[in-house]
């Protein structure tokens, strides 16, 4: 379970999070929506302790993340996969080595045979060819890099997955593949995930619950029906604009098939 309790964070005068409460039950997927710059990435980084809160608490797997010692934090992190918004691939290493570093269990990590198989498997899951393993990040397209970073995050078979815009910059087909992957990981392995996204359609597809981060607070949280029926003007303003975009996008998708 991931639980944020009254989380607050500011950078100098910029209040990014102001008393945020959010709960993700085991095996659930929560999609986090919100306008650009509202603090979605900052919130996600609190969950793995890359950013320390000014006040409030972050509880993951029963552990208070801000209070953990380094060893304990490393141990916890090895069960959490994090997909960085900009990929954050190790650019002096091949794709193979990147994904291999994602295998957090030390015994498995040292086993060459296991790693080869696992890397191939993880590439397949994100719809990439096995040959990609020999390339370097600089030789990949933006969308391929994104998918490699998803591979790296899932390589260690984590219990928790935090995705920071996993489908942004992907074509609709590959975005669907990733949404499908997120769903499958939840259904088959029971992964608990938080998905930060701008893609409202994708969010409705993969998430059990949807949360809207708005002006430093969680403005609304609930199942997709609850969110759609919400009377809150902020929710409407946000959803309508994005749904309009989605409609336009799906129309143009249809157009391309003709």
């Amino acid at each position: 379970m991931i639980e944020l309790q009254h989380l607050s964070k500011r950078f100098l005068d910029n209040v990014v999070l102001d008393g945020v409460d959010l709960r993700v039950d085991d095996g659930q997927t929560v999609a986090l929506l919100g306008p650009s710059g509202v603090g979605k990435s900052v919130l996600l980084k609190h969950i793995i302790g890359l950013i320390k809160p000014d006040s409030g608490d972050v509880i993951v797997d029963g552990l208070h993340v801000p209070l953990l010692r380094r060893k304990e934090l490393a141990e916890l992190r090895s069960h959490i996969g994090y997909v960085f918004q900009a990929g954050a691939l190790f650019d002096s290493m091949s794709v193979y080595e990147n994904i291999r570093l994602g295998i957090t269990d030390e015994t498995c990590y040292r086993d060459d045979g296991y790693c080869t198989d696992r890397v191939r498997e993880c590439l397949r899951l994100v719809n990439l060819a096995p040959e990609v393993a020999q390339k370097f990040p600089a030789e990949l397209s933006g969308g391929m890099r994104k998918r490699v970073s998803i591979s790296r995050a899932i390589a260690g078979k984590p219990k928790y997955l935090l995705y920071d815009e996993p489908t942004s910059g992907l074509d609709p087909v590959n975005a669907d593949v990733i949404d499908g992957l997120i769903e499958r990981l939840q259904q088959e392995i029971g992964v608990t995930s938080v998905v930060v996204t701008h893609d409202v359609r994708g969010a409705f597809r993969v998430a059990d619950r949807i949360a809207l981060l708005w002006q430093a607070k969680i403005r609304a949280v609930g199942t997709s029906e609850e969110i759609l029926q919400s009377k809150d003007p902020a929710v409407h303003q946000f959803l309508e604009r994005d749904l309009e975009m989605a409609v336009i996008q799906s129309e143009s998708d249809d157009g391309s098939h003709v």
Binding site: K45, I48, L50, R70, L73, A74, E75, L76, R77, S78, I80, Y82, F84, A86, A88, L89, F90, D91, S92, L101, G102, T104, R152, G156
Partner: peptide, 21 residues
């Protein structure tokens, strides 16, 4: 320069996110 680039492109954060030091 190497470490600085790794810091600003979040590669160091990525390493830490994998529980690696």
């Amino acid at each position: 320069a190497e470490l600085g680039t790794m810091r600003v492109t979040e590669q160091i954060d990525a390493l830490e996110s994998l529980g690696r030091s």
